[in-house]
């Protein structure tokens, strides 16, 4: 694990909206690393800041303080023009709602090649067409679809177009912000399978932002749980789900209804009470409680979490 190449690093990131009285801290001192080739999940409820982190990496939202490093080089703030162009191409995004994220008045051909045109990433018209053709084939659409308009497609097909638009740039890192939330159950599976397949084939790294924990558990390698702008827990996905430590993570996991009526009837949902922490007198920090398993807690809480674990009580 220790030798794995870090592709993206977020260091003490703060994002603040507004000024003075209206100031709102959306992201508070968040740090994490994403390894090359993995799928990193970011889960949280609406307003938690998960999308803001994604947008900060995309450089849509301005960073108030802190650093975002791509392959060890800073990408936020003032950066050289050629580096700017390179990351514009290397970091791509897939959006949530395929009904809203495609230009209704443009043909698929233009939608997919817009990025190419902006970065002049092709030498001839023939090469451009070839790239579009490849992108469409990779996402399981016919090359002929290039001459059609978005309204001629179903939701699942539209999301494939959204993925093709990202792929055509030959990215290394893709931010997928709730890519399947707007899709039907059977289409979800198709899109997830496609994303997995493309990841293996093109050696992609994903930042997968979602609120649906069952999909995150299935799809991601490591997961960070975010609550009101703070990452409260980060671990390998299976570890996080089988052994959640932070009370918010536990509440979140217990709230997800499972497709098993027997379990559901007897299940007790935990409720998270943010006032339980005594952070005024003893501020928390992000502590590695176990190799690769981080939790936001103060010393007293860490001692308690460790104690509970030693007693052999499953937490």
């Amino acid at each position: 694990m220790a030798n794995r190449e870090v592709i993206l690093e977020v260091k003490n990131l703060n994002v603040t909206f507004g000024k003075g009285k209206k100031k709102f801290e959306a992201i508070k001192d968040v740090s994490f690393q994403i390894y090359k080739g993995e799928t990193f999940g970011l889960v949280g409820e609406s307003g938690s800041g998960k999308t803001t982190i994604g947008r900060a990496i995309m450089r849509i939202n301005e960073v108030t303080s802190g650093e975002i490093l791509f392959k060890g080089r800073k990408i936020n703030g003032k950066i050289p023009r050629d580096w700017d162009r390179e990351i514009t191409q290397k970091i791509q995004m897939i959006f949530q709602d395929p009904m809203a994220s495609l230009n209704e008045r443009a043909k698929v051909d233009y939608i997919i090649s817009e990025g190419l045109i902006n970065t002049k990433n092709y030498s001839s018209e023939k090469e451009r067409q070839e790239k579009i053709r490849n992108a469409l084939l990779q996402v399981g659409l016919l090359p002929e679809f290039a001459s059609r308009f978005p309204h001629e497609f179903s939701g699942g097909q539209r999301q494939r177009i959204g993925i093709a638009r990202a792929l055509v740039m030959e990215p290394e890192f893709i931010i997928a912000d709730e890519p399947i939330s707007a899709l039907d159950v059977s289409i979800r599976a198709q899109v997830l399978n496609l994303m997995k397949h493309l990841q293996q084939q093109n050696n992609l790294t994903y930042l997968f932002i979602a609120h649906d924990l069952s999909i995150v558990r299935f799809f991601t390698d490591r997961t960070a749980v975010i609550y009101k702008g703070n990452i409260v827990e980060l671990a390998e996905t299976e570890k996080l789900f089988s052994n959640p430590i932070h009370p918010y993570t536990r509440a979140l996991i217990s709230a997800v209804p499972e497709p098993n009526p027997y379990k559901e009837r007897s299940k007790k949902v935990e409720i998270y009470d943010p006032t339980q922490h005594n952070y005024e007198t003893m501020p928390p920090s992000f502590i590695e409680i176990e190799k690769g398993h981080f939790v936001l807690a103060n010393e007293e809480e860490i001692a308690r979490y460790r104690e509970t674990r030693r007693m052999g009580v499953s937490m």
């Binding site: 997830l192 299935f218 299976e238």
Partner: peptide, 22 residues
């Protein structure tokens, strides 16, 4: 098909069951 395509039934790293067509 509907139940099989639930992510809870999927095995990590393998394809999730999906319904073909529309």
């Amino acid at each position: 098909a509907l139940i099989s395509s639930l992510p809870q039934l999927g095995e990590k790293g393998k394809e999730l069951y999906s319904i073909k067509g529309t």
